[in-house]
Design a binder for these strands. Sequence first.
DNA 1: AAAAGGACCTGGTGGC
DNA 2: TGCCACCAGGTCCTTT
Length: 272
Amino acid sequence: MPELPEIETIKRGLSLHLENQFIKQVIIRETRLRWLIQPSLSTDLTNQQIKKIQRRGKYLLFECTQGYLLIHLGMSGNLRLVPVATTVKKHDHIDIILMNNQCLRYHDPRRFGCVLWTIEPILSHPLLQYLGVEPLEANFTGEYLYQQARNKKSAIKNFIMNNHIVVGVGNIYANEALFLSKIHPMTASGTLSLADFEKLVKSIRQVLQTAIAMGGTTLRDFTDSKGKPGYFKQALQVYGRQGENCLVCGQEIELQKIGQRASYFCPRCQLK
DNA sequence: AAAAGGACCTGGTGGC
DNA sequence: TGCCACCAGGTCCTTT
């Protein structure tokens, strides 16, 4: 489901309602997520106060009194804030119930996500320590990408979707950013110029920021923490538009698999 | 060392 | 209506 703008949207919604709240009870209905839920999760979390919610890449970090709750939503995960008495549906795996009777409900049909507790320094957690730069922060520059791409032959689309290089850019926004940059998704990363990378950085920033402003992209089932969809789908230039006309030049948008992922591009605007 | 491919899951869709 | 193949917003792990 979610890329950086969707996670950021959820984070902002949850921050408003959860910061400074105390956890009263944790209900676990299904432990088989990407990694098994630790049996101690419930006792670890109970009575913790949520101090602050942060985001690193597509991970949500709930800073608590004595540790961190770390949540990833995988492909199909969602977090909703619901009244405690709300009927439990299929795939509602975890409830985190607060003293004020709000319930943070984790729902994930495909179970590719994870929910775990750690008392280690959060940024040195094994899942986080090798992550690349944040695309909306100042150290994400054309120069950085250019240096990382030296001698790399992988397609530029795979390169910008690689979490060890830059985090948060998933399949939708990789396609959109490459279209804005007029770069063909198959281009070998190492052959692009510094100027290309500067343009690409600008495009990635722009596409992510615009999507955040519109509450993310709802393809079928993404909603924010209150159940509202995002509106960026209407602004998509290439994603899902194979066979339709390029909004810039009128050429038919093409679809090709790159690294097992659907890739959409304009063969006239985006040169190799 | 880098790149490609498989694996993990459920649900929706479109073809026959 | 049913069955089947294929597709999906992610990313870790294994193989080449």
